[in-house]
């Protein structure tokens, strides 16, 4: 475990906690894309199929449980909680997210490291995670005025991906047994690039101390 990986995991964890905190305390999920949250829940469910069959470390298992638990809690809040669900921007959150799932599944069936159920599901989760933020970015662009917590949530998610790339570069040079992982690297790079535009506006808004506003 290197410092970049740990920092990446911590920003990832913070992003989810910021979102849960917002929903739980303000009892509002305004500006949050349910489509993206559904995709993330699917990403974690598909990727962590090994949670009870393969033990890596206590850290690994606990983090997996937190990500699974938090992503399904967010879904529960947005779909079932009688106050929170009323603040959901249903009419704005129109991205056809099902059309992301099928191509990712097909791609995972075609391009994977090993053609087994677990491996294909794992690869599917990597591809899906790369594009899962798209409905959220589209929603942000539509609502224009982004509240601070939603902005921080997306910023932390992007930071997590950026830190993971540095982690891969570090591991590549520092760990003799670490081999090339094109599927993870290319997907991770693509995912980080999707945030580039958002990052530009977010950092400008922080620098100028104004509310984040995305161009239409």
């Amino acid at each position: 475990m290197n410092i970049f990986r740990l920092a990446g995991d911590m920003t990832h964890l913070m992003s989810v906690l910021v979102l849960l905190l917002k929903i739980h305390t303000i009892k509002s999920c305004a500006g949050i894309s349910l489509k993206t949250q559904e995709l993330y829940a699917l990403v974690f469910a598909a990727r962590y199929l090994d949670i009870f069959t393969h033990y890596y470390s206590l850290y690994n298992t606990v983090m997996k449980l937190i990500f699974l638990g938090s992503s399904f809690s967010i879904l529960w809040y947005m779909k079932r909680h009688k106050v929170v669900r009323r603040s959901y921007d249903k009419d704005q959150d129109t991205f056809r997210h099902h059309f992301l799932v099928l191509p990712c599944l097909v791609l995972a069936l075609l391009i994977n490291e090993k053609f087994t159920f677990k491996e294909v599901m794992w690869t599917f989760s990597i591809y899906l995670e790369a594009v899962a933020i798209l409905p959220q970015l589209v929603l942000l662009q539509r609502t224009r005025n982004v509240d601070n917590l939603t902005g921080q949530y997306v910023f932390l998610l992007g930071a997590y991906r950026g830190l993971y790339i540095i982690n891969w570069i570090y591991r590549y040079f520092a760990e003799p047994t670490y081999s090339t992982h094109w599927i993870t690297w290319i997907s991770g790079l693509l995912q980080t690039l999707l945030y580039a535009d958002f990052f530009y506006y977010y950092i400008n808004s922080v620098k100028n101390n104004v509310r984040l506003q995305l161009p239409a």
Partner: peptide
Amino acid sequence: SSPEPTKDEL
């Protein structure tokens, strides 16, 4: 079995 280095990531 061969090690799976990326699977130890989240």
